[in-house]
């Protein structure tokens, strides 16, 4: 039914608390709004614990008005943990896109695109914490949902001081992985 409202793309980013998926949602939303001039609604939910547990971030992107602020049936799901995948994979459109961390989500639908996102993050920057930035590179690289420049600016603007280069590399690794899948 979300399709019945024109021009509405629903993205859900999910993982364990502490994997930075909520921040990834905010960065994607900023890339789409501040750096692309589109309308967005970003929201999140998380358990009471600061680390662990399932956390999700939702971004809805449109050129028009966005009414219902939550995902109805996702166009895109990015899942960085088995628990997150289990919880949300059923709420993806039949023709929707599933992106999973190949190492963390062992049990996934056939149509899921498997990329070792966390491993790539560690390999590229030496820090698993940059997995959320890698995921954004994969997501934008595969879908073109925002311009590459927009996500680059949004990542740079949100990167803590001193980590800009590390995050730039992580984003680039994500784009590279997406390009490899597309071939």
């Amino acid at each position: 039914m979300s399709h019945e409202v024109a021009d509405r793309i629903e993205i859900r980013l999910a993982g364990e608390g502490g994997q930075g998926m909520i921040l990834a949602g905010i960065i994607l939303a900023e890339a789409a709004s501040i750096y692309s001039g589109k309308n967005v609604v970003q929201s999140q939910s998380y358990g009471p614990e600061a680390r662990g547990g399932a956390s999700k971030s939702e971004v809805i992107i449109s050129n028009g008005e966005i009414d219902h602020p939550e995902v109805i049936e996702a166009d895109i799901l990015v899942a960085l943990s088995q628990e997150a995948y289990r919880k949300f994979h059923k709420e993806v459109k039949p023709d929707g896109l599933l992106i999973v961390d190949a190492d963390k989500v062992k049990d996934a639908d056939e149509r899921a695109i498997r990329i070792p996102i966390t491993h790539l993050a560690f390999e590229t920057t030496g820090r698993q914490i940059t997995a959320n930035t890698v995921a954004l590179g994969v997501l934008v690289g595969l879908t073109g949902i925002v311009e590459r420049q927009a996500i680059e600016k949004a990542v740079a603007a949100r990167a803590p001081r001193g980590t800009e280069e590390m995050n730039r590399k992580a984003l680039e690794a994500g784009f590279a992985a997406a390009a490899a899948v597309k071939k």
């Binding site: 905010i26 709004s33 609604v41 970003q42 929201s43 602020p69």
Partner: peptide, 9 residues
């Protein structure tokens, strides 16, 4: 909570 926590431009 929805309006309070959601982000919009």
């Amino acid at each position: 909570e929805v309006i309070g926590h959601m982000r919009e431009p």
